[in-house]
């Protein structure tokens, strides 16, 4: 395979990764890392560097549309970034202290439970109309969005900011420690703990993952993990896919988004358990 074949084929796969990632609020690393290591036999360190690039590309590409269409809860997203960025920076220091295998098993189990909790809410995701959460009320994190699939404006209230912040801290930590799984924890945190509508959770997660990834991107650049011949097709393909995927989210139902998310979450959870148990 010559460099031209490599660039063209990787760009096409990246388009698919961008569509999937933007739809369910994950970075697309779930597609890019296995493709690069298993299909192209690229070194895992370079694959993780490409994954960080794909996360930022998905986030910026999709969020530009989601924020304009008011699908993203901007205030809640920016508020929760307090916890994700703090988690990402503290994770960079804990890397040497905590055994990676244990972390993979632990977060594999956490994500397995999250997929179950997300699946269970499939019939009961009516938005809340009242909130006694003092933090949410003080910062006015409540919102509303226009749902093109249901053809109506949907207003919602936010609760559970404290468990939400704790889960977001964990999301920042795990993305810095393991290089994956940041969006996988963010969506359940907003959906299950804070009761944001599924599409808003996905769009807001998309908005936030770019900032979490940027907090550790500097380290990857200096360590020489961002190889231009891999990063170029990944960045361009994912950006194209995410821009297209952002048009899809509005049209499909919340339930479809939820089910696609649950399937991908189960895959990530099994992948993490496998890395922890049979490395």
């Amino acid at each position: 395979m010559t460099p031209l074949d490599f660039v063209v084929s990787l760009a096409l796969i990246s388009v698919a990764a961008g569509v999937l990632g933007s739809l369910i609020g994950l970075g697309g690393g779930v597609v890019i890392v296995p493709v690069l290591t298993l299909l192209y036999h690229v070194d895992i360190r370079l694959a993780i560097g490409a994954s960080i690039v794909s996360v930022i590309a998905t986030s910026s590409g999709a969020a530009a549309a989601y924020v304009r269409e008011r699908m993203t809860n901007l205030r809640a997203g920016m508020f929760l970034e307090i916890a994700t960025t703090t988690g990402a920076v503290s994770g960079a220091y804990l890397t040497t202290l905590l055994p990676t295998r244990f972390l993979f098993v632990f977060f594999g189990l956490v994500l397995g439970y999250s997929s179950f909790a997300t699946f269970r809410r499939r019939h009961a995701d009516a938005p809340l109309t009242v909130s006694n959460d003092r933090i949410a009320n003080y910062f006015n994190l409540h919102g509303s969005y226009y749902d093109p699939a249901e053809e109506r404006e949907i207003a919602y209230k936010v609760v559970g900011t404290k468990p939400g912040l704790a889960l977001m801290y964990a999301a920042g930590l795990v993305s810095a420690l393991l290089g994956i799984g940041s969006g996988a924890l963010k969506v359940p945190a907003m959906d299950s703990a804070m009761h944001l509508p599924m599409k808003v959770s996905s769009a807001t997660s998309n908005f936030m993952i770019g900032v979490t990834a940027a907090a550790s991107a500097g380290v990857y650049f200096i360590r020489g993990q961002i190889d231009p011949i891999i990063a170029a097709p990944v960045a361009a393909g994912v950006l194209l896919g995410a821009t297209f995927g952002a048009r899809v989210l509005g049209r499909v139902t919340s339930k479809t988004v939820r089910l696609v998310f649950v399937v991908v979450l189960v895959v990530i959870s099994l992948e993490m358990l496998q890395k922890g148990i049979f490395p």
């Binding site: 770019g210 900032v211 650049f221 961002i226 231009p228 011949i229 990063a231 170029a232």
Partner: peptide
């Protein structure tokens, strides 16, 4: 290419 990737990384910031 690396310059372009750095611009991408700086966008969220």
């Amino acid at each position: 290419v690396v310059l372009g990737v750095l611009i991408l990384i700086l966008t969220p910031i």
